[in-house]
Design a binder for these strands. Structure first.
Length: 570
RNA sequence: CGGGGCAUGGCGCAGUCUGGUAGCGCACUUCGCUGGGGGUGAAGGGGUCGUAGGUUCGAAUCCUACUGUUCCGACCA
């Protein structure tokens, strides 16, 4: 393609509202433009990239045996009412009415539609298992869209759904989707990790997320230094400490801690480490109006996902109001402790393992020190309530955990029969009886993958596309073509030659000054650059530069196809 | 939802405090010189100063309301 025929909408300056690097570079390279909060137009150059990502996804879905279809982006409320999600989904669901006053939503996901469809169209066990996928625009009315395309409201998603008679078949498709996802992200050239994940409100047996590793990632993932174990921190189990609790030597005493509320303040005031304190957090219990105390070590954090799974605790996890706190323990936030509490107490394994600790005294401005379980208060009921931290033992017993940041680009679930039951999706089984289908669902945030890729591959000049996602594989820049008919003709001929040889090539025929052309192409991130100038032409040579490592070389024009193929690894 | 910032040409910003009819850089158009990492000179085009009210002889500037947008928070014991 000729650059004079593609919109090259590069920006010299960084737009003020772009915070993270991928957002800045997508705007600067002219891949996208913002229309409204969380809504973006894909410009031609950006769309080329998006289509390449889509193509990879399509190929791997097809070879994993999934069939492509396309469902409407607008869905009737009725379907969502049947599964109960019309009420449950909350304000993220964009609801709308047509001219007759019928209610619809803009689909944030398509479980309802596909389940309904399969329930109608698939009648016999002989047609199973079956997997469908689509690449469709979704809309989720995020509380706070941010980071450009990373957390946009409208985004492009590949979603696949599989249908089965039994768990074994579901597991098989799940495994092949897992493999297909790995293949997809490998082909894109991404540094990624599959991790065990929480199934969230959807429920189900198994779930994995695929994360692109990047320091700007919104998720924390834990992985073992020695084994294959990897999990979202939301899920990663914090094992009980191996060592025995130290003996209770200190005497429990009441200490004044005026106006010291946070763990940090108390620790500084008493000159102790946060690990010697415990913090007590009051949350709503699962019974209406009840309150439960959660106890963790001072240097740890509550894991909401784990906590709300506890039968005593209300989901979603809700912290108590100041009034409830005062009523339950007689002190306000900052002075709560487990000693003498009459409400149910759940203690994290690590917090249960410390001795001679400091905690709130349930009296404002007072803490206890030298407190010990089984002496000053009963031996506690323990639970896993905290986020794992780096250095914790790996839950599989091998190695210790490390923590990294990740961008979630894919998520696969075993849904079971949650949706099929409610939408009555069943088939006749071999026995002649009708049977509810069991389901899996598999998503990839295609537009997010693009942003994640840029987070991983850029430098101070711009984007450095992995070959598989680059808008063009090669760019040909003629230098000073305006001055020389010979050069113009040679450049045209070379362009045609490379086109015929099957390269995905951009011919920069804009006639810009070399500096401008180079800067634009570096910003856009085309992996391989050929430069044709008078100098080289005299010797029948063309210059080559690699975007990723900056290496330069020169080779004969006659040899250019061979040389490029070598560098493109084809 | 709570708190803060911002809104002036396509982009980045100044001007607002102290009211007098809008400016800079980049980009864009034309012409010249130049031509291997965002060159240069000249001449141009482009702005209801977010919207609506109000104060005033006069409002980008002061007041009120609204809208948009963005950042932080919604893990706090």
């Amino acid at each position: 393609m000729r650059s004079s025929q593609v919109l090259i909408a590069t920006l010299k300056e960084t737009p003020a509202d772009a915070e993270i690097i991928s957002h800045q570079l997508m705007l600067r390279a002219g891949l996208v433009r913002r229309l409204a909060s969380g809504l973006y137009t894909w410009l031609p150059m950006g769309l080329k990239v998006l289509r390449k990502a889509e193509a990879i996804v399509r190929q791997e879905m097809t070879s994993a045996g999934a069939q492509e279809l396309l469902m409407p982006s607008i869905q009737p409320a009725e379907l969502w009412q049947k599964t109960g999600r019309w009420n449950k989904y909350g304000p993220e669901l964009l609801r709308l009415k047509d001219r007759h006053g019928r209610e619809f939503c803009y689909g944030p996901t398509h479980e309802e539609v596909i389940t309904e469809l399969v329930g109608q169209e698939v009648r016999s066990y002989k047609q199973l298992p079956i997997t469908f996928y689509q690449i469709q625009t979704k809309f989720r009315d995020e509380i706070r869209p941010r980071f450009g395309l990373m957390r946009a409201r409208e985004f492009l998603m590949k979603d696949a759904y599989s249908f089965h008679l039994d768990q074994e078949s579901l597991q098989q498709t799940y495994d092949s989707m897992f493999a297909a996802y790995s293949k997809i992200f490998e082909r894109m050239g991404l540094n990624f990790r599959p991790v065990q994940a929480d199934t969230g409100s959807i429920g189900g047996n198994a779930s994995h997320e695929f994360h692109v590793l990047a320091s700007s990632g919104e998720d924390a993932i834990a992985f073992s230094s020695q084994s294959q174990y990897a999990a979202n921190v939301e899920l990663a189990e914090a094992l009980a400490p191996r060592g025995k609790r130290l003996p209770a030597v200190a005497k429990m005493t009441n200490v004044d801690t005026p106006k010291k509320h946070t763990i940090d303040e108390v620790c500084q005031y008493l000159d102790i480490m946060p690990a010697q304190c415990i913090k007590t957090i009051l949350v709503q219990g699962s019974e209406e109006g009840s309150v439960v105390a959660l106890v963790i070590r001072g240097d740890h954090e509550i894991n909401e996902v784990k906590a709300e799974k506890n039968p005593l605790i209300a989901a979603p996890l809700t912290f108590c109001t100041p009034e409830q706190v005062t009523k339950a323990c007689g002190a306000s936030i900052g002075s709560i402790g487990p000693v003498g509490l009459t409400i149910p107490l759940l203690v994290d394994r690590a917090a249960a393992n410390i001795a001679n600790f400091v905690c709130g005294a349930n009296q404002n401005g007072q803490h206890f020190s030298g407190v010990n379980w089984a002496r000053d208060l009963p031996e506690p009921e323990t639970a896993d309530l905290r986020n794992v931290v780096a250095g914790d033992p790996s839950p599989d017993g091998e190695g210790v955990l490390e923590i990294a940041r990740g961008i979630e680009v894919g998520h696969i679930f075993q849904l079971g029969d949650n949706y099929s039951k409610k939408l009555n999706a069943n088939v006749l089984a071999e026995s002649g009886k009708s049977q509810i289908l069991s389901m899996g669902c598999y998503g990839i945030g295609v537009s997010r993958v693009i942003a994640a890729t840029i987070e991983q591959y850029h430098d101070d000049r711009g984007i450095i596309w992995p070959l598989a996602l680059a808008p063009f594989q090669v760019v040909l820049v003629p230098i000073n073509a305006h001055k020389s008919i010979r050069l113009r003709e040679s450049a045209e001929a070379l362009y045609q030659h490379l086109l015929d040889a099957g390269f995905d090539i951009l011919f920069d025929d804009r006639g810009q000054r070399p500096g401008v052309a180079f800067a634009d192409m570096d910003l856009i991130g085309i992996p391989h650059r050929l430069i044709l100038g008078e100098r080289g032409l005299d010797n029948g040579m063309v210059e080559y530069k690699c975007r990723a490592d900056g290496s330069e070389s020169e080779f004969s024009i006659d040899d250019v196809v061979v040389q490029l193929r070598k560098r493109l690894n084809i």
